[in-house]
């Protein structure tokens, strides 16, 4: 611990002089992330009810080997590593789960106890968080498939149409795109690494791109939560329709 003699007693895990209910901050993250992980894992392994009419669950897109010619397990298992890796290494989610799950620290000015071996993200395994930008590239490819799926969701056997599922899939891909476009690594790559926009080639468009991503990035946490909810709810809706629990309502 730090060597202030004033607060030597504040070295136990969870000890603090804060009077507010600091633990309330971490409960939503703990509950919602846990629920999402359990639901997504179950759905990934379920291997059915992922496609109905023009709708394809985002957990299964792109759909690879649905007929099980060479892959005998659920097709979702082949692809979920991409979006999962993007979220796990995301700068916002790191903050959230370091606080809620690992308790490094549980909250600001709340002791996590003394850990002599603490290395943060400076050594294995957490040094691997630096791979985040590569997951961004992978997710950018996934987004192309999800946009394709969202467009296809408006194509019914009799032609163009709008169902509740079409709207849900469109909203979902919008949230996922905004979340991805507000990524800190993207912000760095499009212009954050430039020190002098007025001195480099294509400085003006790079500055504009950096400004645009910065505006989105200011609400990265919001986009992270909205897209987490939207992807789970989109899959849930398609599952309920595919399994016959719900009937998709046609709006047009």
């Amino acid at each position: 611990m730090a060597d202030s003699s004033a607060v030597k007693e504040l070295t136990r895990f969870g000890s603090t002089q804060r009077r507010d209910a600091w633990w309330i901050e971490i409960i939503p993250a703990l509950v919602i992330f846990s629920a999402f992980i359990i639901y997504a894992t179950w759905r990934a392994f379920e291997g059915k009810f992922y496609e109905v009419g023009p709708y394809l669950s985002p957990f299964y897109s792109p759909l690879i080997d649905p007929e099980h010619h060479w892959w005998r397990f659920s097709p979702a298992i082949l692809i979920l590593g991409g979006p999962a890796g993007f979220r796990v290494t995301c700068y916002y989610y790191r903050k959230a789960y370091y606080r809620a799950f690992v308790m490094h620290p549980p909250s600001c000015a709340v002791s996590e106890g003394e850990h002599r071996g603490y290395r943060g993200e400076a050594s294995f395994p957490l040094i691997l968080q630096n791979v985040h930008r590569y997951f961004f590239f992978i997710v950018a490819v996934f987004l192309c498939f999800l946009w394709y799926d969202a467009v296809v969701a408006f194509k019914f056997p009799e032609g163009f149409g709008i169902g509740v599922g079409s709207v849900i899939m469109l909203v979902n891909v919008l949230f996922l795109t905004t979340y991805s476009a507000s990524c800190h690594s993207l912000r760095h790559l499009v212009g954050g690494k430039v020190d002098c926009f007025s001195c480099v080639t294509l400085g003006a468009p790079r500055h504009s791109a950096w400004r645009f991503v910065t505006i989105l990035n200011e609400h990265h946490m919001l986009w992270a939560w909205l897209s987490l909810f939207s992807v789970a709810l989109t899959d849930l809706y398609i599952r309920l329709v595919a399994s016959g629990v719900l009937k998709d309502i046609r709006l047009l």
């Binding site: 903050k95 490094h104 620290p105 603490y118 290395r119 943060g120 993200e121």
Partner: peptide, 15 residues
């Protein structure tokens, strides 16, 4: 400066 030790929990920004 060991920037890798920082696990970006944002308490610095909060205060």
């Amino acid at each position: 400066l060991g920037i890798g030790f920082c696990n970006i929990t944002k308490c610095c920004t909060e205060v």
